[in-house]
Simulated assay, not measured.
Amino acid sequence: MSSSVLAKPQMRGLLAKRMRFHLVGAFIVSMGAATYYKFAVGEARKKAYADFYRNYDSMKDFEEMRKAGIFQSVK
């Protein structure tokens, strides 16, 4: 009967080692998500607002709403 001796598992410092690995991974994933959101959502939203307000005339919009009867206090 041959029996091989198993290596002892590492117990000392195991939590710190695993925590370091997971903290670095979590930091990288969160920075990636923040960068993705900034460029995919934030920049597109800023561009959409800039395009809208480039030719926006608030008085023309007000007059159209007034003629449509949206405002009760303005005739």
Rank of each mutant, 00 (worst) to 15 (best):
H22G: 06
F52K: 13
E43V: 08
N55A: 14
D51I: 07
M59N: 09
K38Y: 05
K38R: 06
V41S: 04
F62N: 06
I28Q: 11
F27S: 15
F62G: 05
F21G: 06
A33G: 05
Y49W: 12
Y37G: 04
Y36R: 03
A48G: 03
E63A: 11
R18K: 10
F39Y: 11
I28A: 10
F62W: 06
N55H: 12
Y49P: 02
D57F: 12
F62Y: 11
Y36V: 11
H22E: 15
A34W: 03
R45P: 00
M19G: 00
A26H: 08
G42A: 04
V29R: 12
D57C: 13
T35W: 08
I28C: 09
K38P: 01
K46D: 15
A44T: 15
A50D: 15
H22N: 14
G42Q: 05
F39S: 06
V41M: 06
A44K: 14
V24T: 03
E63P: 01
E43I: 10
V29Y: 10
L23R: 14
R54F: 00
Y37M: 02
G42C: 07
R54P: 00
R20M: 08
V24G: 01
A26N: 07
L23D: 10
F27R: 15
Y49F: 13
D61S: 13
G42D: 04
S30D: 00
R20W: 06
D51P: 04
A26S: 10
R20H: 13
S30W: 01
N55C: 09
N55F: 14
L23Y: 12
M31T: 01
Y36G: 09
M59Q: 05
K17L: 08
G25H: 05
K47V: 04
S58A: 10
D57A: 13
Y49M: 13
F21A: 08
V24C: 00
A44E: 12
E43L: 09
G25Y: 02
K60Q: 11
G25A: 08
M19R: 00
R45K: 11
Y56Q: 00
K46R: 15
K47W: 02
G25W: 05
K17M: 09
F21N: 02
D61M: 10
V41D: 06
A33V: 13
A33K: 07
D51Y: 04
A48K: 13
V24P: 00
A48F: 09
G25R: 07
Y37N: 03
M31D: 00
R54T: 02
F39V: 07
E43S: 09
G32Q: 07
V41E: 07
R18P: 04
G42M: 01
K60I: 06
K38S: 08
M19P: 00
K38Q: 07
F52Q: 13
A50F: 15
K17W: 03
A40V: 06
A26T: 11
K17N: 05
K60C: 01
A40D: 07
Y53V: 10
Y37R: 03
K60G: 03
A33Y: 08
M59Y: 05
